[in-house]
Amino acid sequence: MNKVFLWGGLRPAAGGAEFVEIEALTIRELLRKLAERHPKLETLIDSEIAVSINGTIYQDDWSKKIPKDAEIYLLPRIEGG
């Protein structure tokens, strides 16, 4: 089971929860399950999410495997200059 932390902006769409517990092997699976559980999150997930796994941020590589008990943090997508 992975603890998935939500940044402040996502919490309202997840009923105010700071984190949710989800079992998932890849980022894709994680996001799918998250959207199933909290449908309001779906559009946010589609457009503006980055995923941090143990501190490393992934913006696109949804096939990335999630290690067991990894800390997952959902963040806004980051833009650069």
Binding site: F5, W7, N54, G55, I57, Y73, L75
Partner: peptide
């Protein structure tokens, strides 16, 4: 734990 959420490597 970083101020933006994740824990640093």
């Amino acid at each position: 734990r970083s101020s933006y959420g994740p824990v640093y490597g």
